[in-house]
Amino acid sequence: MKFSEQLEARYSEMLTHYPVKRSLLVPFLLYIQDEFGYVTDDSIEEIAKRLEISPLEVRNVISYYSMLRTKPSGKYNVQVCTNICCQLRGGEEMLGHVREKLGVKVNKEVTSDGIFSVEEVECIGACSWAPAMQVNYDFHENLTPEKIDQILDEYRQKAVQE
């Protein structure tokens, strides 16, 4: 199990933040996820070993936080907010539109080409600019179906080019 140089650097830096090393667990798991696409079994073992806690403890923590996943998502995880403020301004319709466009039905489903996954999420803090979604960490706000089409097309193109 090897972390990239960048991730190792992040780890070393974060270690200096806290009097107790396990404290870096939550944000670091998200960095692990960024590197591998999800928190892999190997990385759970690795981080548990480094922090001197049990892998079970790590899994207990992972399963608590909604952003952390132990299975792959699409390359671009489209997270559509349907919470109250987005709902009032068409959030559910936007989710429906994304699902229809990408041909997925159930929550967290990954498209067959692996480029997208679609997740219905709780409030992402874009209430005044609703409806909104995040693609990975990027915010897209004041959505309309047309705007969504354009955004998703751009991501698809980016994925194809890479």
Partner: peptide
Amino acid sequence: VYWHGGAGAY
């Protein structure tokens, strides 16, 4: 002064 990030939990 240190930064710290969450991972999704109201």
